[in-house]
Design a protein around this nucleic acid. Structure first.
Lengths: 228, 228
DNA sequence: TTTTTATGTTATAATTATTGACAAGGATAC
DNA sequence: GTATCCTTGTCAATAATTATAACATAAAAA
């Protein structure tokens, strides 16, 4: 029980909440271009997190600031980009060209943050072959080749629930290793696949709960999981 | 320091993760119509959570099962519906009729779960007055009257980031008390407003992080916050 | 009446996250 | 060049949350 298995060395066990906040720090820095230096206190002001927390989050990855001064914005931004792995453009595959899928395809927020939906798949022969917003819709039957040739590691899925598991299985087989799932279905994936679920209807369900059982929150929770 | 303030009596402090899972139990029950009774073990099988956890979650709200037998499906479903407050149809307002907004408007997942997007707002004079999928797009300037007359308590927002805060402020003033925010911007709301953020780009950012710093997860985490 | 089965509940363990405090490091001003 | 001020990096303590396991109890079936 010395090495091997479990957690592959390094990686000091970063809290998942830290990872989440990191991206928000990064986005906040994209805005503030007024000054060249920013203190944890100022960044706290902008993002709504505590200064202590920001400093703690950052030091998981190194020492980026200068005492008595703060953080050099450009430098910190660069570091965050590097940490988050957004120092490149990711090619993302979208599976499902329905209403939601097409909206995701044109969603500017992805592009702005360095994610390019470079391929769209669908099974519908009606859609296959056509282009939507400059992106060709390919037959999902050919997903494997295309994914490999485009070096795609991230996929977004927006297909009917019944098709979800099958689609994901094939994506995994094709070499995709991260999936952003919009389908309201709990997909099973092997442990090495990174899966994130966005369950929009379930979120409304939560709101319905909190509205119904009028939960009075003591204070505005500073983005614990996601507010609330 | 006897009563008043803090947490308004009752409400035994339900873990937020429990609320999340509750909705997933509910959705799972919608499917399984084969039998009339289901055990926590069986429900665990379907949903992927542990049987102990399911029982624990449920008993926050009462005793719904019969020992030696399990849970009566119809009865449990009914209870969950009641707890979640989805025993009615919620009228939801959508603000922002852009690409994303329009996709959300037609998203079947909402309707299926009892949420009806009954009103759409936009500021764009081009869009106002037109209908989209049978729903009239109204001028956001008239939001207050319309929201009040339609008894709308939940709003979904999908507007440009710069407009988000202003829009939310007005929604709150109009009487909306729950907001599902798709805008990648940390909106500030008074403590009594329930706000849930869906930050799609940030989710991709997280995936990018996990992909870059290859984090090997010891085991498939059973939907802690949302997988990963 | 006995056996079986699955719930409800309590206690425990573990994890995870937040907060506060402070020493040390630079920068700036004098 | 020295003193003062400011802000970081980090440690330790605390707090909150969540999950797990075990078991007594209660209903059903045999």
């Amino acid at each position: 029980m010395t090495m091997t298995t479990e957690k592959e060395t390094n990686q000091k066990k970063i809290p998942s909440m830290t990872v989440r906040r990191l991206f928000l720090y990064y986005r906040a820095l994209l805005e503030s271009k007024d000054t060249s230096v920013i203190s944890s206190e100022e960044l706290a002001e902008i993002t709504g997190f505590s200064a202590a927390q920001i400093r703690k989050d950052l030091t998981y990855f190194g020492q980026f600031g200068t005492p008595g001064r703060g953080y050099n914005i450009d430098q910190l931004k660069q570091k965050l980009i590097q940490i988050l792995g957004v120092d490149r453009e990711w090619n993302v595959a979208l599976v499902g060209a329905g209403n939601l899928g097409r909206a995701l395809l044109t969603y500017q927020g992805f592009k702005q943050q360095g994610f390019k939906v470079s391929t769209v798949f669908d099974k519908d022969k009606e859609k296959v072959g056509k282009s939507y917003h400059g992106v060709l819709i390919s037959d999902f039957a050919h997903a494997k080749e295309i994914i490999k040739s485009h070096d795609i590691r991230i996929a977004i899925i927006a297909v009917p629930a019944v098709a979800a598991q099958e689609v994901v299985d094939q994506l995994v087989e094709a070499g995709v290793s991260a999936i952003l799932n919009f389908v309201p279905y709990r997909i099973k994936v092997p442990p090495h696949i990174k899966l994130l679920n966005i369950d929009m209807a379930a979120e409304l369900g939560r709101l319905s709960y909190y509205l119904t059982n009028d939960v009075v929150l003591a204070k505005m929770p500073e983005l614990k999981e996601d507010t609330l």
